[in-house]
Design a protein around this nucleic acid. Structure first.
Lengths: 122, 122
DNA sequence: TCCATATATGCAAATATTATTATATTTTTA
DNA sequence: TAAAAATATAATAATATTTGCATATATGGA
């Protein structure tokens, strides 16, 4: 996979609703109604409110154009599935535990002064 | 680290110039002139054109507001460094080799017809 | 002190993203 | 065959992002 495609995938995944959709898709093939149920307030939506059906379709279209998902048809259902292999790894990072910060290089914590490590330009 | 912070990090990293900056930062502390050199046409910029100094500063500010980097001061140099622990892992994914596609579920390759695996709603 | 260097900030224009609403398409069922 | 279900598309409005350009600020050196 090309780097530009990976950047495209990063862009596409950087939205709470689309992340929810992709996480759900990781469990297997899902149709739009599944997402609609999942993203409804009662259905356990992570978001305060319902996400409308057209909005879900738009997010699915965006994910498809970014090459993250595709679908097949069963009657009036569109059955979506993951096709981009970077997605499972990205989702894993989102679940992984991280400390708040990396260790910082030495500098005065008050004045924020320190020394540049390289050669200075002239 | 909170999930919302990770999503924020994904958003912030989803830009070719900012990825270049972050990859450069992974090598160690760098000042703005370092990025300017790196992102100039001669300096080996991945992009066709030069990236202007104000534009670099703007991207650095964006990365800082997203909590990905911070800086200390050495005279008139601002020395930037990574602080968000998810960044090295993300950059690794960008370098990792992936196949073009995941295996697809069974469906007719021409008509795109297949069968929905779950229970149908009524 | 005056000037050059390193970097940031402010603003405007162009563009992109997001959600909402209304409507269209296709398929199934009564 | 008409209505309902599942889903997509289109148009719009509200925002956000991105860039370019001009200018501001701070530091160090002559």
């Amino acid at each position: 996979m090309e780097k530009s495609q990976k950047i495209e995938a990063l862009r596409a995944i950087s939205h709470p609703v689309r992340i929810a959709i992709l996480e759900e898709l990781q469990k297997g093939v899902k149709c739009v109604s599944d997402f609609k149920a999942f993203l409804s307030a009662e259905g356990g939506s992570v978001f305060g409110k319902d996400i409308s059906q057209p909005n879900i379709s738009q997010h699915l279209a965006a994910l498809r154009h970014a090459g993250l998902i595709d679908y097949y048809i069963d009657g009036r259902l569109r059955c979506y599935f993951l096709i981009n292999p970077i997605i499972p790894d990205l989702i894993e990072l989102l679940k992984k535990d991280y400390p708040d910060e990396l260790p910082r290089p030495k500098c005065c914590p008050v004045t924020k002064k320190g020394t540049y490590p390289g050669e200075r330009r002239r």
